[in-house]
Design a binder for these strands. Structure first.
Lengths: 238, 238
DNA sequence: TCCTGTGAATTCGTTCACAGCC
DNA sequence: GGCTGTGAACGAATTCACAGGA
């Protein structure tokens, strides 16, 4: 049953399923099949069934899944049945944008503290919160029971600030700085790196352009192209 | 040799290697072994060798890889030997933050256009660029030869804007809206979704807290815990 | 009959281990 | 001797295909 450990790949998809299910609930759909859910997410139905089976046997054969019940179970598995307090460290453009981002609170993530070192920012109000000096980190993490730190500081400060977050007791870090951080084993770390995403895109972009150039040349040489199948299976990025 | 197709997983790591190599070059290192590179990235050396072997045989046995040459080859593979023009659509908090983000230009991504529909924003100057109305999309994509669109619009507009980008000829889209977009097969799509990242973190966070609670309870029951191995192998998120 | 839950088969990715070259 | 490049072994993730319950 649900004693099996949930694979990493499955964990990453659960939030996606959850969002789709919330959409369905909004539209007053009460029941959904793996087939229907799969087609709206764009994956194989068997994958959905297997993923969900890691949480338990929450479907009904011949019918499908009860939307509300499934929402509840996925939320529980992801730890979303209570709110989480987060701190944003670094209030440059990106930090401020995140502080003002509504989808945060909407999904149960409470911004409990904003911190920076810049004296021009400390004391200012951003998104309704006073910006504190990073030296207050220890105190505020304890007082607000902050478990998640969002790192939006410049690259060269990232490791130092990560260390301070860990020292203060934060055990999950979402890093927006384009740097490899090292954290103790008991701390979860995830990275969002803009330029990596763009560079992956240019890889495929370039390949397409090269293919096209090749196609044109071939076209000039031999009129028709019998081998259309060759270009069909691009490993599309996820 | 390099005729083998490059696996998706490898493509995603190449930008990381590239960044490390640029760091090394900055510090005037001329040569690096897979072992050294691996330890700075935190992966298995064999993985690095295999990844790099997809690009060709660019190492020297008994010595390692020439840093500059490898930088050149990875850049070429990723299509970074020339600049790419990008358009940012949606200049809310996040869009403005991205427009002002320095790392963009630094890595060869030129912001060629900013677009929005909001009459309050159109005509304003953001990060040195005049914000255009989305109706200008077609023209500006052609004029500026924009291949990459960055989507930072509200969720409900995302699909519509994606369609317009595709219609205008954009073939790579980086989507920051928390929505599933559908695009034609010849268009690459990548997604950055904040709340998914946070929800993956809370999954592990919650599991840790549950383990801890369990540990405490067990501790109260039977004094010592012989089975320390059970908690050792958390599948740490990437 | 319909759709879930899951073993079996398959594909994809990682790591090992070593032959081959500098 | 040292380090790359890569087949072979292994492991994880996906998909197939079907048994079994509503």
């Amino acid at each position: 049953m649900s004693a099996r450990p949930i694979p990493e790949a499955t964990v990453q998809r659960l939030p996606v399923y959850l969002r789709m299910l919330l959409d369905l609930a909004d539209r007053s759909t009460t029941t959904v099949s793996s087939e229907a859910l799969a087609s709206s997410v764009g994956v194989n139905p068997a994958k959905i069934r297997k993923d969900l089976s890691f949480l338990g046997s929450y479907g009904t054969r011949g019918v499908g899944y009860d939307v509300d019940y499934l929402i509840h179970q996925i939320s529980r598995a992801l730890g979303l049945t209570h709110d989480w307090s987060t701190a944003i460290v670094g209030l440059g453009n990106l930090g401020q944008a995140l502080a003002n981002y509504g989808g945060f609170a909407e999904r149960g993530f409470r911004i409990a503290a904003l911190l920076d070192v810049d004296p021009d920012l400390v004391g200012q109000t951003v998104a309704g919160h006073e910006v504190l000096h990073v030296d207050e980190l220890d105190r505020v993490v304890k007082e607000e029971e902050i478990a998640i730190g969002v790192l939006t500081v410049p690259e060269r400060r990232a490791q130092e600030v990560a260390d301070r977050l860990v020292a203060a007791g934060v055990t999950s870090i979402l890093n927006f700085a384009p740097s490899l951080l090292s954290v103790p084993e008991h701390v979860s770390l995830r990275k969002v790196d803009l330029s990596i995403e763009l560079q992956v895109l240019t890889f495929y972009e370039q390949r397409r352009q090269a293919e096209q150039a090749l196609g044109l040349r071939e076209h000039a040489d031999a009129a028709a192209d019998a081998d259309a199948a060759a270009s069909g299976q691009e490993p599309e990025p996820t």
